[in-house]
């Protein structure tokens, strides 16, 4: 599996072959608070880099989930729809959102590595 990369919209992404797994970061879940609703893209649909690909809602508000790369949705994680609290418990592991068959691996180059993201998250939240 490739190195984990991060977007400015607080998504994480890993790559295995040409299939990317995408979720939201721990930092994002901490900002959102208790997550009580998740909506995922439809399997087989196409999503465009930086476009909306889902929704999460906390007790306080709704937030869009974006996709950091373009591709076709090949799998979605139904378990987080059934039990959204999982997203708070294991955001960067079991509570992934969707898998994409990606078109263009060079889109990953624009994303941050862990160190860059941690710095970005710290700066933007203070």
């Amino acid at each position: 599996m490739s190195e984990v990369k991060f977007s400015k919209e607080h998504e994480w992404i890993t790559l295995e072959g040409d299939v990317a797994t995408i979720g939201i970061t721990k930092h994002a879940t901490e900002m959102l608070g208790d997550i009580v609703f998740a909506e995922l893209p439809e399997k087989g649909s196409s999503v465009e880099k930086d476009g909306t690909a889902g929704v999460v809602e906390s007790t306080k508000a709704a937030s869009d989930v974006y996709t950091p790369v373009s591709g076709e949705v090949v799998d979605t994680n139904q378990s987080i729809v059934d039990d959204p609290a999982k997203i708070n418990e294991d955001p960067e592991g079991g509570a992934w959102f969707f898998k994409l068959k990606i078109k263009d691996t060079s889109e990953l180059d624009t994303l941050m590595n862990k160190e860059e993201y941690d710095k970005f998250a710290k700066e933007t939240s203070s």
Partner: peptide
Amino acid sequence: PIQYSKGII
């Protein structure tokens, strides 16, 4: 205060 460390739920 909107919430404390334990969260709304």
